[in-house]
């Protein structure tokens, strides 16, 4: 069993990040090698400055707010929490003075970031079981949401255990030494990560996250990167 844990926590993580990074670069390169569209694809009237409206469209989803306000609330909550989560993970690598402008404990959000994300994901998932969104969805849409939900739920459980139940066997220091060892290519697994009662949460969290990262470049998740240039085409 320890071998499986090791494979998931070390080689698979490297593989996942490799596929994620190389995959994204390759896909973007392929798309950018195509010629630009011969005609402008603007929607009129064009508001100035175009770049500002492009940013608004990309990060605040005004069209969703206007037409699907409930979805918009969940989308905004989801994406903001995603950003906080990213910061939280970075802080597991090192201290960033920048992020500590608002002083907080690591991991960020006292457990609530993960909770909100999980709720949002359930909402996204269940709305896909209702027409007309159901009729538009393909299996990939459900799988991705379920996969992401699994990543979030196991990740959050570790956080909840520490934040809400004062579980102390796996500490921020343990995560940090594990992640840093991966980063400098001298992988080491602290005893608690594989032998404590909550090890399975970490293993499953990392396992599903690996799958998610590997699928990212080949799926609709590329919208995370392509949304900006697409909105630029519409806004000018």
């Amino acid at each position: 069993m320890q071998t499986v844990y090791y494979i998931i926590l070390v080689p698979m993580v490297y593989l996942a990040f490799g596929v994620f990074i190389v995959g994204i670069i390759a896909r973007i390169a392929k798309i950018w090698r195509e010629p630009p569209n011969p005609t402008p694809l603007l929607i009129h009237p064009v508001k100035k400055p175009g770049w500002l409206w492009t940013l608004t469209d990309t990060f605040l989803f005004p069209t969703v707010r206007r037409h699907k306000p409930v979805l918009w609330v969940f989308l905004m909550a989801f994406h903001i929490c995603l950003l906080l989560l990213l910061i939280g993970h970075l802080e597991l690598l090192a201290d960033f003075a920048l992020f500590q402008v608002i002083p907080h404990e690591i991991f960020l959000g006292n457990g609530f970031v993960g909770l909100i994300l999980a709720i949002c994901l359930l909402y996204f998932l269940f709305r896909r079981f209702v027409s007309p969104v159901k009729d538009l969805s393909v299996p990939e849409d459900y799988y991705l949401l379920i996969l992401l939900f699994l990543v979030v739920i196991f990740g959050s459980e570790m956080d909840w255990a520490r934040s809400w139940y004062e579980y102390g066997e796996m500490t921020v220091e343990d995560y940090r030494s594990y992640l840093l060892s991966l980063l400098v290519f001298k992988p080491e697994l602290p005893y608690s990560t594989t032998f404590s009662g909550h090890s399975f949460m970490l293993i499953l969290h990392v396992f599903f996250a690996n799958l998610f990262l590997m699928f990212f470049p080949f799926s609709q998740l590329m919208h995370a990167i392509l949304s900006l240039p697409m909105n630029k085409l519409r806004r000018g």
Partner: peptide, 17 residues
């Protein structure tokens, strides 16, 4: 195929908006 067409083919999340 061109750049814009590839964007459009790759990105729809079928969000239903």
């Amino acid at each position: 195929f061109n750049r814009a067409m590839r964007f459009y083919l790759e990105s729809c999340t079928r969000c239903g908006t």
